[in-house]
């Protein structure tokens, strides 16, 4: 029996809970662990399990629906959609580059050796390429 993927949030984190949910779910969706057509828990169920207000989960679902990951229908809950990645705009590419540099700089500033950061980035790139090309 296969187990459903899980997401984890930190209720003490300064990052808003809805943002944590979006990030965690997007990670699961990008990795292909949730195939198109699969139903997700209702807003109330997910809110109770995560210990957050149901509006928080609803907001996260709406954000993912706007990105084209989910189909939200009243009374039927959320369903995963088959999504084709859009062509990234120059602004998106620039933002990605800036964020990556910021994360790398923070890691180096926190004392993580340069080679470990490079290894982690290489590993991640390899994982992603394996998931994208089955």
């Amino acid at each position: 029996m296969t187990h459903a993927p899980t997401i984890t949030i930190d209720t003490a984190s300064p990052i808003p809970a809805y943002q944590q949910i979006v990030t965690a779910m997007r990670g699961v969706l990008v990795s292909g662990q949730l195939e198109p057509g699969r139903r997700l828990p209702t807003v109330r169920e997910l809110a109770i399990d995560l210990g957050v207000h149901h509006n928080t989960v609803a907001e996260a679902y709406r954000t993912l629906a706007a990105e084209g990951w989910l189909d939200l229908r009243r009374r039927r809950g959320a369903t995963v959609l088959s999504r084709v990645a859009p062509r990234p705009s120059p602004a998106v590419a620039t933002e990605f580059s800036r964020n990556l540099r910021a994360v790398t700089a923070k890691a180096l500033a926190d004392g993580i050796p340069c080679c470990t950061v490079a290894e982690a980035l290489t590993e991640l790139a390899q994982e992603l390429s394996e998931e994208v090309t089955p």
Partner: peptide, 11 residues
């Protein structure tokens, strides 16, 4: 713990 986890599947 302040971590809360949930399964992404309906009950």
């Amino acid at each position: 713990t302040t971590l809360r986890s949930a399964e992404l599947a309906p009950r």
